[in-house]
Simulated scan of single mutants.
Amino acid sequence: MGEDLAGRTIADNVREYGWHCLHVFPTQEGQDKFSYSIGFGESYGAPEVLVFGLEREKAHAILNECANLFKGGHTVRPNVEDPDVLGGGYKVVFKPVRPDCFNEYLGTALRYYQGKPFGAVVMFLPDRQHRFPWQPGYDYIPADEPLAIV
Rank of each mutant, 00 (worst) to 15 (best):
Q135V: 14
E65W: 04
E29M: 12
F124A: 14
G137I: 12
S43T: 00
A6L: 08
G87M: 01
L147W: 13
D139Y: 10
P136G: 12
L63G: 09
E29R: 14
S35N: 12
L22H: 12
T27A: 10
D12F: 05
V122E: 13
K95F: 08
K116V: 08
V97S: 01
Y17W: 04
G73A: 00
R128F: 05
A61W: 06
D32P: 06
N68Q: 02
P78A: 01
V121P: 14
V121N: 03
A109Q: 10
P142T: 12
V49E: 03
F52R: 02
M1C: 06
Y105P: 09
A120W: 01
K33V: 00
G18V: 15
P146V: 10
H74T: 03
G53P: 09
H23E: 09
F70E: 03
G73V: 05
L63T: 08
P117L: 05
P126L: 08
F102I: 01
A46K: 03
Y17H: 02
E48Q: 10
A46E: 09
S37I: 06
P133Y: 06
F124C: 15
Y90V: 14
V122T: 04
K33A: 08
V14P: 13
L5M: 15
Y140P: 11
Q31S: 14
A120D: 09
E55Y: 03
Y44S: 04
L147F: 10
G137R: 11
P126Q: 10
E57R: 12
G18N: 14
P26T: 10
P146S: 06
Y113G: 03
T108F: 04
L86I: 09
G2K: 14
W19C: 03
K33Y: 04
N13M: 15
E57P: 03
G30S: 13
H23N: 15
D82Q: 06
P126M: 07
P133M: 03
N64H: 00
V150Y: 07
A6C: 04
S37M: 13
G30I: 12
Q129M: 11
F34Y: 14
D12I: 06
V92F: 07
D4Y: 09
F70H: 07
E104N: 13
G72D: 15
E65Q: 11
G107V: 02
